[in-house]
């Protein structure tokens, strides 16, 4: 009996110590880590749009963040979008699942604070009234050039082989894929981790919505010329040649990675779901905005 008590005591102390060390490390590093993630995200967004440090985005290009929430409405659910308005304020537009407009509530929050999930959710909740359950779903960045829509950026998460894969997807106005970047993942090195290689993620580039809707993986070796076009940076192929080959394979399925079919199809299905759902939702949102004469900067 005494033995059991000592074991319980020692194990508890060991766990507490471990927790203390991890907690201290978390507090010490969390801020820097978040900052790094944010910087990286900005860089990836710009590179997906085709800009870089050498070729910076012109001032006419602006990014507008739209946050999607799930709102409990009595028995059912509805979608809420936190939108920036033309005059710089924010508005929360609720749309029920059938696609009809429910309400528009002004939200008082500064643009800087809107990027912080905690403060944003609090502001939305206080604008709506406290009794409605509210859950943050995802965000979309609408990129405009001189006030006209240029592209959409969708950060997203989907299940991979072991745990979640975080990705950033850039779509054109007509929902064809502009680019895909893998932000974080824990796939096996040498196998599933190849999803972050150019020859895999560039396969998504340029695929139109109709192709993406029925996208699958195929277990076949990558054709030689397609591989060269996908790794244009390495093989030194000209831009015209790359565009020609890309177009030729544009309606093809995704060629699975050798030894990592699960990771390949996880990314393919994840991208497919993200694009399909987004195209559906944005059509509804646009219709409601037009019907209600809500003036957004995009």
């Amino acid at each position: 009996m005494k033995n059991i008590l000592t074991i319980i005591f020692r194990l508890t102390v060991a766990c507490l110590l471990a927790g203390l060390v991890m907690g201290a490390a978390f507090i010490a590093t969390n801020k820097a880590k978040k900052h790094n993630i944010h910087v990286n995200e900005q860089k990836v967004m710009l590179s997906l749009l085709g800009f870089s440090a050498k070729n910076p985005a012109p001032d006419a290009v602006a990014m507008h963040e739209v946050y999607r929430y799930l709102v409990g409405e009595g028995e059912g659910l509805s979608m809420g979008y936190l939108l920036p308005l033309q005059d710089g304020s924010f508005s929360f537009v609720t749309i029920d699942l059938a696609g009809t407009f429910v309400a528009q509530t002004p939200v008082t929050i500064s643009p800087e604070k809107a990027t912080e999930e905690g403060e944003r959710t609090q502001a939305v909740a206080s604008a709506l009234g406290a009794d409605k359950p509210l859950r943050y779903a995802d965000q979309t960045i609408v990129v405009t050039d001189n006030g006209k829509r240029m592209a959409y950026l969708l950060p997203g998460m989907f299940t991979g082989f072991k745990t979640f894969i975080g990705a950033m997807l850039a779509l054109d106005q007509d929902f064809s894929i502009r680019g895909l970047e893998i932000m974080e993942h824990e796939e096996d090195p040498g196998l599933g981790a190849e999803i972050e290689q150019e020859y895999f993620k560039n396969q998504f580039k340029g695929k139109p919505l109709e192709t993406v809707k029925k996208l699958e993986v195929k277990k076949m070796p990558l054709p030689e010329e397609y591989l060269k076009a996908l790794e244009a940076g390495k093989s030194g192929l000209g831009a015209e040649e790359v565009a020609r080959i890309q177009e030729q394979y544009q309606d093809d399925d995704i060629y699975a990675l050798t030894g990592a079919t699960i990771s390949s199809s996880a990314v393919t299905n994840g991208v497919k779901a993200m694009v399909k759902k987004f195209a559906y939702r944005v059509a509804i949102l646009d219709r409601v905005l037009a019907e209600q004469h809500i003036a957004t900067p995009f």
Binding site: R10, L11, A14, T29, V39
Partner: peptide
């Protein structure tokens, strides 16, 4: 370390260090 709970303690130690190294790398050597 109590001899009966050696292995859990080892696992705990390794997990702690792995987590700490992971966090420190992410913060200071992105």
């Amino acid at each position: 370390i109590h001899p009966r709970i050696r292995i859990p303690t080892y696992t705990l130690t390794i997990a702690t260090w792995v987590t700490v190294i992971d966090m420190v790398l992410a913060a200071y050597l992105p």
